[in-house]
Design a protein around this nucleic acid. Structure first.
Length: 588
RNA sequence: GCGUCCGUAGCUCAGCUGGAUAGAGCGCCGGACUUCGAAUCCGUAGGUCGCAGGUUCGAAUCCUGCCGGGCGUACCA
């Protein structure tokens, strides 16, 4: 569709130049960039619109007059082929040759299949993208789910644009908060295990983190014990190390199970316990080179006045490192492991300051790639009742939420008497839950805070993931019906010129625009463009097949032509589904 | 205080590089199943696009100021 627009932009531009010569206006006053293409507000008006406002001055004519001259000049011109050009007020409207476009899109989608929409615009990119980054003291919550959805989706979108992509996770497996759950387990664990308690292992660990909180309120010694444990851990004390390994394994295994559930994966996993010392070394090197300075108490600082910020500690007075220090080490190590052309951090907006500082420090250290670091920040997820607060226990647990959605989906399948049709109810309901979750989370621009309404997200009416899946399942169902039909009848042939109703025209244009949507989503790193497109395509098709029978037609050619259109829609739905983590279902 | 992001219908959100009467979903009210699965479709009502200026032929969109809100501004992560 973009190609068609560009082509018309040139035709209109050339026609304008010719017109200018007739009027005795210097054509050099006209620029191609001034010829802006738009979409008319109503499809009856045309497919592409060119406003004539910018040319009123040079022509010393009203935009409407220019539009009228241009439309009549182009009408009958052989350059426009089967298309039509009309004037509507100050606009020149083009009614494109839809049959040609239909044939083109049909060929394109059939040839490229799952690859339709992919392009090579980012072919020279090696993108590393970090997301999720859980702590090993508690299970994932709703905030992580938004992070994961965005990270996974953006990764897929960048890949679709030709970039090489490496998804990395950074597991925060050390520090005082990890020691707290360990301490509580040591105190109250009584050799229990997730197996003995029949509990998901990360939840098992998380419960001890909560237990520590209670404990520290009753016993002032608790905090001291945790601090002591951190020192022992850093010293490599065997008993502590043993406990740490055990509990981390439980936490990580549980979290990985959640990833499998929600459809998230990584190409590489980093552990802070393995990289935190590297940061310290880098800071000390920077200190030697005079990039940083040392205070009297021994702490190491960076002066941020160059970026209008204050100053920041990089190493504590006792020599231990901080979050920022670790991230410095991790970044350097990652670039050494896999030299990227750019790196994206998917992290909540509350850490904007942190990344501003981190990127600046890396630049100061002289790393060229530091200018290619990007913080993809996203807003908070709130509940209809208000904010999630861990202290008040209003944090929505990821597993709990997912299972709740899955139950609702299963209930819906049962209430519609569809168990026999879907086969494995559990699998189908899990797929529906995934669609509901990912679509709901990716519908909102990442930057914005959002409200997650569990009830609305699990609703199967309206603008939801399950609705989109339903569209895919319905088309699949039609295709099956057609295959089951009596084969003795002669099959029809696909004829683009039979697809003439407005809804078909609309669908063709949507299908043709998909590749440019993928490009824009990639440039902006914004899955919203894909979710918006998906909804529009689904709604258009839904209305279309509701009003226009596909299989029930006398004309066999029309049946095949409409069926081919349905197949195209299905293919594009599938392709876009993949980019936003909606599982495709043949039946539901 | 400073930094940063946000402020569009009762609620949740779209709105491409500024362009023709600002769009969806939910909710409300009212229609459509002897025909491809009604998890659907159609229609009605509902908006001074926070406020005030500015740039422009034209502003929800760009600029400035104000008002309201989120987040940050730790030798926490």
């Amino acid at each position: 569709m973009q190609a068609v627009k560009r082509e018309w932009q040139k035709i209109v531009y050339n026609a304008l130049r010719e017109l200018s010569q007739q009027k005795g206006v210097d054509p050099e006053n006209l620029e191609l960039a001034q010829v802006i293409s738009e979409t008319p507000p109503k499809p009856e008006l045309g497919d592409i619109a060119f406003p004539m406002f910018p040319f009123a001055r040079v022509f010393r004519q009203s935009p409407a007059q220019i539009a009228a001259s241009l439309a009549s000049a182009l009408t009958g011109d052989e350059r426009i082929g089967q298309a039509k050009v009309t004037q509507a007020g100050p606009y020149v409207n083009v009614h494109i040759d839809i049959v040609a476009l239909t044939e083109e899109v049909h060929n394109e989608i059939n040839e490229r299949g799952d690859g339709y929409g992919e392009n090579r615009s980012m072919a020279d990119n090696r993108t590393m993208i970090e997301f999720s980054c859980p702590n090993t003291n508690k299970p994932l919550h709703l905030g992580h789910l938004r992070n994961d959805s965005i990270g996974e989706s953006v990764s897929r979108i960048l890949k679709a644009n030709g970039s090489e992509v490496r998804k990395v996770n950074l597991i925060n497996d050390r520090g005082i908060h990890i020691c707290k759950s360990m301490c509580a387990y040591k105190e109250f664990g009584d050799h229990k295990t997730p197996e003995s308690e029949g509990q998901k292992s990360d939840h098992f660990v998380g419960d001890y983190y909560v237990r520590f909180d209670q404990w520290s309120k009753e016993d002032p010694q608790a905090e001291a014990k945790a601090r002591k444990m951190l020192i022992d851990w850093e010293a490599g004390e065997p008993g502590v190390n043993e406990l740490w390994k055990r509990m981390n394994r439980w936490a990580v295994e549980g979290i990985e199970e959640t990833y499998r559930r929600t459809g998230v994966s990584f190409d590489a996993v980093y552990y802070e316990s393995e990289t935190y010392l590297a940061g310290k070394e880098e800071v000390l090197k920077g200190l030697d080179r005079g990039v940083f300075y040392r205070e009297e108490d021994g702490s190491v600082w960076v002066d941020l006045s160059e970026i209008d910020l204050d100053k920041k500690v990089l190493l504590r007075s006792d020599g231990t490192s901080l979050y920022l220090t670790q991230d410095i080490g991790t970044a350097i190590r990652r670039h050494a492991d896999w030299p990227f052309t750019r790196m994206i951090y998917v992290v909540a907006s509350e850490q904007q300051y942190h990344f501003k500082v981190l990127f600046h420090v890396l630049k100061k250290l002289g790393f060229q790639w530091a200018r290619k670091l990007y913080h993809l920040s996203y807003g908070m997820v709130n509940l209809p009742e208000g904010k999630m607060k861990s202290r008040e226990g209003t944090v929505v647990d990821a597993d709990e939420l997912f299972l709740q959605l899955q139950d609702m989906a299963a209930e819906e399948i049962r209430s519609k008497d569809r168990e026999d049709h879907v086969g494995d109810v559990e699998q189908a309901s899990a797929a529906v839950a995934r669609a509901a979750l990912n679509y709901y989370l990716l519908q909102v621009s990442p930057m914005k805070d959002m409200v997650f309404d569990p009830r609305e997200s699990i609703s199967f009416n309206g603008n939801t993931g399950p609705y989109l899946q339903y569209m895919g399942a319905r088309i699949s169902s039609m295709l099956r019906k057609y295959e089951e039909q009596d084969r003795s009848e002669p099959r029809g042939r696909f004829k683009a010129e039979l697809l003439v109703v407005p809804e078909e025209r609309q669908l063709i244009k949507l299908l043709a625009s998909y590749p440019e949507i993928v490009i824009r989503a990639g440039e902006q790193m914004n899955p919203t463009l894909i979710t918006g497109f998906l909804y529009e395509l689904s709604r258009s098709f839904s209305k279309y097949y509701h009003d226009h029978p596909i299989l029930h037609n006398e004309d066999r050619d029309l049946v095949v032509s409409r069926l081919e259109l349905a197949k195209m829609v299905l293919q594009v739905l599938k392709n876009a589904f993949f980019l936003v983590g909606i599982p495709f279902l043949e039946r539901m």
